[in-house]
């Protein structure tokens, strides 16, 4: 691989991130709502406290956060501070910074979604590969249909059912949260804590896995049906290879290529994939944080999460672009 290609690919990544970040900056601003005024209205509603000099206080905060400047100036300021690694302060949880809030929520989401994305990919691709293989028993081929029905159900709806039957009625698993708050003061490194987290993660993970395994299975089956009819699979059998070897090295190995691309994209979007399910289970991840930020018009938190999502998608796309030649020798970047 040529250095020239690497450089071009990296510049492309920067361009993508910058474009997306620009769009992201202006969209929340289309709303006329003033987040600081809203915040004080909220305080007034819940506590009955109304400061006397409200207009001046709002102005003071606007000046402090730079919200009184022209939009284009705010944009340049924001882009500048992002380059310095500063994502600003949260408007709803002032004086906590966006980096702080995200840093607290991100590990939860990354752990939950990495595990579920990987499991979904493995299970779905496996079922799809078997379903597309002509020698599979018919009950295996039939498995794709119920999985597709499940895939048509949104994760949060299935989540409601799971909460009701498994957590509420049968009391087998906790209702919500990421760990038992009464038992632990905060995250700690102990076997008990990890087991507790795992127990809390089962239902959110199930809601995510069951509702998306069908897509992976369907995609893999589609490719598999095409590949199993290819001449090289036939010729492999003519060569007298064992079925297992044909299945893996000739069939799966070729059919899986588009799945791997999809997996990279899925990894890029794990930050945003579980938003609804996280909210449903009160899981302290990025999804819950984003939900709260949108409700409060907390521009800087929205921007921060958006930036992470954009960078994650862009970087995983770049990684898959750079590693794809290892999977498919027909793709190479060193040609002129």
């Amino acid at each position: 691989m040529k250095i020239g290609y690497l450089v071009r690919r990296f510049l492309f990544l920067v361009f993508v991130v910058w474009t997306a970040a620009t769009v992201l900056f202006f969209i929340p601003r289309l709303s006329r709502v003033n987040p600081i005024r809203e915040r004080f209205a909220e305080i007034q509603r819940s506590t009955g406290y109304a400061p006397r000099d409200l207009e001046n206080i709002i102005k003071a905060f606007e000046t402090k956060f730079g919200l009184d400047k022209p939009l284009i100036e705010q944009y340049l300021d924001y882009m500048g501070s992002v380059l310095r690694g500063d994502l600003g302060v949260s408007l709803m949880r002032y004086p906590r910074t966006v980096v702080d809030l995200i840093g607290q929520a991100l590990p939860w989401t990354v752990i939950l979604l990495t595990v579920t994305t990987l499991l979904t990919f493995l299970i779905g691709t496996g079922i799809g590969a078997l379903a597309g293989w002509p020698r599979s028993p018919s009950w295996v081929k039939g498995m794709v249909t119920p999985l597709m029905v499940l895939a048509a159900v949104p994760g949060y709806l299935l989540g409601l059912l799971l909460i009701y039957f498994i957590a509420f009625r049968a009391k087998l698993l906790p209702l919500s949260g990421a760990y038992t708050t009464g038992r632990f003061l905060g995250p700690e490194l102990s076997i008990e804590f990890i087991l507790d987290v795992a127990r809390h993660a089962i239902l959110p993970a199930l809601s995510l896995i069951l509702t998306s395994v069908g897509f992976w299975a369907l995609g893999m089956r589609g490719m598999g049906v095409t590949v199993q009819g290819e001449d090289y699979v036939n010729f492999a059998e003519h060569k007298g290879l064992k079925q297992g070897r044909i299945f893996y090295w000739y069939y799966v190995r070729n059919a899986i290529l588009p799945q791997v691309t999809a997996l990279a994209l899925a990894f890029g979007s794990i930050v945003s994939a579980g938003i609804l399910v996280e909210n449903l289970y009160g899981f302290p991840g990025i999804g819950s944080l984003l939900n709260a930020a949108i409700l409060a018009n907390d521009f800087f938190v929205i921007y921060g999460i958006g930036m992470i999502t954009i960078v994650a998608v862009g970087v995983s796309m770049m990684i898959i672009d750079l590693t794809y030649p290892l999977l498919d020798p027909r793709i190479r970047y060193d040609r002129k």
Partner: peptide
């Protein structure tokens, strides 16, 4: 197959595993 009786395929363009 291959050791007693072997087969040279018609579609040789596509008879080899591309990966």
């Amino acid at each position: 197959r291959l050791s007693k009786i072997s087969y040279i395929p018609q579609g040789a363009m596509n008879s080899l595993n591309p990966v």
